[in-house]
Amino acid sequence: MTAHVITISSGKGGVGKTTTVANLAVALAADGAKVVCIDGDIGLRNLDVVMGLENRIVYDIVDVIEGRCKLRQAMIRDKHLTELYLIPAAQTRDKNAVSPSDMTRLCNELRPEVDFILIDSPAGIERGFRNAIAPADRVLVVTNPEVSAVRDADRVVGILEAEEKRQTGLIINRLNPVLVKQHDMLSANDVLDLLGIQLVGIVPEDEGVIVSSNRGAPVAQDPKSRAGQAFRNIAKRIRGEDIPLMEFGRQDGLWDRIQKMAGGRKA
């Protein structure tokens, strides 16, 4: 096994990075992949509560990096999915406790053991973001169909483009089809025209996302949820399957623009 390392980033905070990591992780693991999630938001630990694992934390990523525990000891196994693990962020330290090369080293140690490593990037384009993208084979940029989120996403895409070394893909989260239909929200096509990168998926605005994070059980596990379905579809695309987009109105021709991910997974 050689893991595919995917970092979820956005620039702006609150657009759904942590939600996306938790849901893609659950969806990939439910499909039989071995997945490790890393919370890269040092000092603002969150992925643990969204995944419902907050009570199981003993060691965190900084303990691993500073040699207080073995990598294995900081990997918390999911309650339901036996092939899903979380490495939590340190809560009482800051982002300078970790360097980009620490992240690369840690991921290199994990690569032979798992199929996917998903890294939850903090907001911003500073050190924490640099740490999170350092080991990435692919960076998925999450945005909302909204002016400030799109602008910040463009900054992140610009930085990634300047480095020219990894694939990028776009996830449009919290799309409200009713607002799009009445031309009061940017459509997925609008966002793609603006950002000019490849689409990996669209996730609708869905109350179920909030309800499920209250419970610590990501919505991808709910077969009836629209957002859950969208996340499961993205997980399949990450694995190289051709999965059509869900219908959200005003998206003529969008299917042609979706990232063809066959072969995306490293052999």
Binding site: V150, R151, H183, L186, D190, D193, L194
Partner: peptide
Amino acid sequence: SAESAKERLQLVL
């Protein structure tokens, strides 16, 4: 408003 958003973003970006 979606059209204004797109036009404004085009310039800003």
